[in-house]
Design a protein around this nucleic acid. Structure first.
Length: 299
DNA sequence: CTCGACTCCTGCTGGC
DNA sequence: TGCCAGCAGGAGTCGA
């Protein structure tokens, strides 16, 4: 699930739990995710203190006190669980029995709990990813921008560098459908399938339209709604974060209502002159991915 | 360079 | 009820 808003929600959930804390123990439970873990992964993290939780596009960055940066990508199915080592739990003598992770003193993990970080205050952070499209890597703070994952990323859609003018330049002359162009992380960093569909719907732009037809008036409609869709999703994620605190810390997935995504066959929610648009949400496949849109109001 | 197709992995859903 | 094909929110690579 994780697109930019979900990753930002994870970052905000992890920030208070991890900042200033030391990795007392790191458990790497398999040799690889999508890629092999970097050499001496566990050794390089153990004993280090977290100084900062950051995010670039869909990547989490965990900066350490020696200048190293742990890069985390959640892929398609990655999630992070926080088990607070608070007084209540430790007094119960069980770390997180509710999640089925306690087995008579021996540690029992879900088979997709790939990395476990035990912090010095007893908090346990678990990276779980059943499809294993996620990955982790280690680099240095001053080499971060040159990292292969970061080097060619376009601007952050919530940052100052992202604007209608940027879309004008980035989409100029591109014959690919605008849907595919917006999924290209070199053009905008952090959009995924869901929020591209949602943004195009809000902007009233057909996903099939060639990218080269966007610069100008359509870019002026599109750039602000991209920002708006992401900001709203982050707010929704923030509210779901509070819920997760109560249900014990699963980060990375939250309920959100979409206008077009996964609504094939349902009525379009666009209102024109206080009347529904009357269109029906359709689904097409572009570059191997489902696109949801309203053929009536997206042109 | 640009673009689309294909690929990695596991689990869930929906149709028979 | 059971089985299996199809599909899933990412992104790198390959070949045209």
């Amino acid at each position: 699930m994780p697109e930019l808003p979900e990753v930002e929600t994870v970052r905000r959930g992890l920030e208070p739990a991890m900042t200033g804390r030391r990795f007392a123990r790191v458990l790497q439970r398999r040799p690889d995710l999508r890629f092999p873990f970097p050499p001496r992964f566990v050794a390089r993290l153990t004993g280090r203190t977290v100084t900062r939780l950051g995010r670039r596009a869909k990547y989490l960055t965990v900066t350490l006190d020696d200048g190293a940066v742990l890069i985390v990508h959640l892929g398609m199915s990655g999630r992070i669980l926080i088990h607070p080592g608070d007084g209540v739990r430790t007094q119960l003598g069980s770390f997180h029995q509710d999640a089925g992770h306690q087995d008579g003193g021996a540690e029992a993990f879900d088979k997709h709990d790939h990395v476990v970080f035990d912090l010095d205050d007893g908090t346990r952070i678990i990276f779980n990813d059943h499809r294993r499209f996620g990955f982790m890597d280690l680099t240095d703070e001053d080499a971060l921008d040159a990292h292969p994952a970061f080097a060619r990323l376009g601007p952050e859609p919530l940052g100052n560098a992202f604007s209608a003018a940027h879309l004008d330049t980035a989409l100029m002359g591109k014959r690919t459908p605008v849907k595919a162009a917006l999924l290209d992380q070199r053009i905008v960093a952090g959009l995924g399938n869901i929020y591209v569909c949602e943004a195009l719907w809000r902007a009233g732009i057909s996903p099939r339209r060639q990218a080269l037809s966007i610069p100008g008036i359509r870019a002026q409609r599109l750039a602000p709604v991209i920002r708006q869709v992401l900001e709203e999703a982050i707010v929704a994620g923030g509210s779901s974060l509070r819920d997760y605190r109560h249900t014990d810390g699963e980060l990375g997935y939250f309920q959100h209502s979409f206008a077009v995504y996964d609504r094939e066959g349902e009525p379009c929610r666009t209102q024109k002159d206080e009347k529904p648009c009357g269109g029906t949400i359709g689904r097409i496949v572009q570059a191997g991915r489902s696109t949801f849109f309203c053929p009536r109001c997206q042109r």
